[in-house]
C-alpha cells in the first residue's frame, strides 16, 4: 500500500489506480496505474486500440470501470463540484451539433456547467473564433471545429485538460497552434494530458510520457529519458587503426564491430569516452558520427509487442 499524498498536494492531479475495463471477455484496459502531474504536458501514447480513449472516458466517469479507482483533484470525478471548473475535455468526435452555432453550443455547455456567460466570449477570443461565433458548426472546417472543441474544454478555466487525439487530421498550422496552446497551458501551471497514437506528434510537445499497449502500462517516464533508455544509438568511428581501436574499446566494455576497412561501429560508449580511450591508446580518430535513434524509433521498439493489428510487411 502506497502512502497517499495529502489532499492539498493532489490538486490538479489525475490518479489512476489498478484501472481495468472489460468489454465482454476482452480487456480494453488492464491493471493500469499511473498519475498525471500539473505544470507539464503529459503525452498518453499507444497504438490504436490500446485503451487510451477508454482510459480518458473512465477518468470522466463516462465509462464505468470494471475495477480500480480514479481520482481527479484528489476526489472521484462524480464527487467534483462543478466538474468543468476542474477538468476540461476534448474527446475525439468533437461533440458539436452541426446545426448549432459555435456561440449557442458554448452557451448551452456554460449553462449546464453553471459557468458565467461571459466565459463564452472569452474562450471564443482565446481560440480565435470570435468572428465565426454565429456560424453553424456544420460549416466549420476541421481546424475550426477543433478550435471550438478546445474552446469548450477551456470554458470552465479548468486546472486539468484532457485532450484525446487533438491534432488528428489537422493541417500543419493547426497542429502548431495546438502544440503551442498545450505548452502555454502547461506553463500556466495546468495539467495537460494529451493522447496520441503517433510519437512524432509528441516529440516536441510532451515533457512526460505515459505509454500503454494492449491496455497495459509500458512506460511512465520523462520524454528525454525514453530515448536514453530504449534507443540503441551507436557511433561510427573512422580511424587509421581499426584493429587496435577495437581491442581498446572492447576492453572498456563496448560492443565493437568493423563496418568497413577504416570504420568501426561502437555500441555502449559515448563519443567522449571513445575519444578519450583512443587518445590514451594513441589511436588517431578521423571522424566520429553519432547515429541517434529518434523518439519515434524508441517508441516503436517499445510498443512493437503490443500492436494489436498489423499489416503484412510490404
Amino acid at each position: 500500500m502506497r502512502a497517499q499524498p495529502a489532499l492539498c498536494d493532489r490538486k490538479r492531479m489525475i490518479e489512476i489506480e489498478d484501472l481495468s475495463k472489460r468489454y465482454g471477455d476482452r480487456y480494453a484496459v488492464r491493471d493500469l496505474t499511473f498519475s498525471v502531474f500539473p505544470g507539464r504536458v503529459t503525452g498518453f501514447l499507444g497504438p490504436n486500440g490500446s485503451g487510451k480513449s477508454t482510459t480518458m472516458r473512465a477518468v470522466l466517469g463516462l465509462d464505468l470501470p470494471t475495477a480500480g479507482r480514479i481520482r481527479v483533484d484528489g476526489r472521484p470525478y462524480a464527487a467534483l463540484e462543478r466538474p468543468l471548473t476542474h477538468v476540461g475535455m476534448l474527446l475525439d468526435a468533437g461533440g458539436v451539433h452541426p446545426g448549432r452555432s459555435a456561440r449557442q453550443h458554448l452557451r448551452a455547455v456554460a449553462a449546464a456547467g453553471r459557468l458565467p456567460a461571459r466565459r463564452v466570449d472569452e474562450v471564443l477570443a482565446r481560440v480565435g473564433l470570435t468572428d465565426a461565433a454565429g456560424r453553424r458548426a456544420g460549416e466549420f472546417s476541421l481546424g475550426m471545429r477543433q478550435r471550438l472543441g478546445i474552446a469548450t474544454a477551456l470554458l470552465g478555466d479548468p486546472g486539468i485538460l484532457l485532450l484525446d487525439e487533438p491534432v488528428n487530421g489537422l493541417d500543419p498550422e493547426g497542429v502548431r497552434w495546438i502544440r503551442d496552446l498545450m505548452k502555454s497551458l502547461a506553463a500556466e501551471g495546468r495539467t495537460v494530458f494529451v493522447s496520441s497514437h503517433l510519437m512524432s506528434e509528441m516529440e516536441n510537445t510532451a515533457d512526460h510520457l505515459v505509454v500503454i499497449g494492449r491496455g497495459r502500462l509500458i512506460a511512465d517516464i520523462p520524454a528525454g529519458e525514453l530515448i536514453e533508455r530504449y534507443s540503441d544509438g551507436f557511433l561510427s568511428v573512422r580511424t587509421t587503426d581499426p584493429g587496435r581501436l577495437i581491442t581498446v574499446l572492447a576492453a572498456a566494455g563496448a560492443q565493437v564491430t568493423p563496418e568497413n576497412a577504416d570504420t568501426v561501429r561502437v555500441d555502449g560508449l559515448s563519443g567522449d569516452a571513445v575519444a578519450r580511450l583512443a587518445h590514451q591508446a594513441g589511436v588517431l580518430v578521423l571522424e566520429t558520427a553519432r547515429h541517434a535513434t529518434s523518439l519515434e524509433d524508441a517508441y516503436l521498439r517499445l510498443t512493437d509487442a503490443a500492436v494489436e493489428y498489423r499489416g503484412v510487411p510490404a
Binding site: 470522466l60 463516462l62 475535455m89 475525439d92 461533440g95 451539433h97 455547455v109 456547467g113
Partner: peptide, 10 residues
C-alpha cells in the same frame, strides 16, 4: 454528435 459526453462530464 458525441455532445452527450460533454453533457454527462459536465
Amino acid at each position: 454528435t458525441g455532445l452527450i459526453r460533454t453533457t454527462f462530464a459536465t
